[in-house]
Simulated assay, not measured.
Amino acid sequence: MDFLKLEDQACFPVYALSRVLTAHYKPILEGIDLTYPQYLVMLVLWEHQQLSVKEIGEKLLLDSGTLTPLLKKLESKKLINRNRSNEDERVVMINLTAGGTALREKAKAVPESFKCSLGLSIEEMVALRDSIKIILERTKQINK
């Protein structure tokens, strides 16, 4: 095995798959007027209702420079509110608006549409997710 050949790299198929899957989401998410990164932010907020920008960044592995424009766009769509914390004005809290909460109902169809569009079974999707999670957790431990 020649580890300086692209086809022998472990990271390239992961990178390529990430790009392909993200692009695959695009037509599905157009139905709810979200980009893939915006969808990820909304998933986190639908689960937690209110989080700080820092907490969202930690959950999504995004820095504030990447996250801030996403949040501003979601705010302009009236899906979220950004407010300074009463306890610490340096902390910006993000919470869902009524529109953001209502969008969750429309978004319920996204995972099934995505799975079906790929022709994967639930078992295959779970196995893929679980394998990737193992590698992510290991790399988080190494990078601490």
Rank of each mutant, 00 (worst) to 15 (best):
T68Y: 10
D8M: 11
V92A: 02
K72G: 11
E87Y: 01
E123L: 05
L29D: 01
D130L: 05
C11A: 15
V44L: 00
S52V: 00
D88A: 15
G31R: 08
I28R: 00
A127S: 13
L67R: 08
P37W: 03
P13Y: 10
L67A: 12
N81W: 10
W46Y: 08
E87I: 12
D130H: 03
T97L: 02
D33C: 10
N95Q: 00
R82Q: 15
G65T: 05
Y25G: 02
I142E: 13
I28L: 11
L61H: 14
Q38A: 09
H24F: 01
V92I: 14
K54N: 06
N83G: 02
M125Q: 05
L136P: 01
N81D: 09
S117T: 07
E47N: 06
D63R: 14
I94C: 14
R90K: 12
E89T: 14
E30K: 03
V44G: 02
R82A: 08
Q50K: 13
D130F: 00
A10C: 07
D33E: 15
L96R: 02
I56G: 10
V126M: 14
L45R: 02
L61I: 15
M42N: 08
T66R: 15
V92D: 03
E30C: 04
E55M: 10
L62F: 12
T35H: 03
Q9P: 04
L4W: 09
R19V: 07
T22I: 02
I132R: 11
Q141N: 09
V126E: 15
Y36E: 12
L136R: 07
F12K: 14
T22W: 00
L79H: 06
V20A: 08
Y36A: 07
T139S: 04
M93F: 01
L103A: 05
V20T: 04
Q38Y: 03
Q141K: 14
L34E: 10
E137L: 13
I142W: 14
A23H: 09
A102W: 05
L45Y: 04
E47R: 06
Q49G: 00
E30S: 10
A23Q: 13
V110H: 04
T66K: 11
A107Y: 00
S64Y: 02
K72M: 13
A109R: 01
M1C: 09
L136K: 10
A10E: 12
A23F: 02
A102N: 15
I135F: 04
I135E: 06
I122R: 10
L118R: 05
I32G: 13
E105W: 01
K140M: 13
E124H: 09
K5Y: 13
L51R: 07
K115S: 05
V110P: 03
F3I: 15
A98M: 06
K26Q: 02
K73W: 02
L21Q: 04
K106G: 10
A102S: 15
F114W: 04
G57K: 04
K5Q: 15
G99D: 13
K108A: 09
I56S: 11
Q9S: 15
W46I: 10
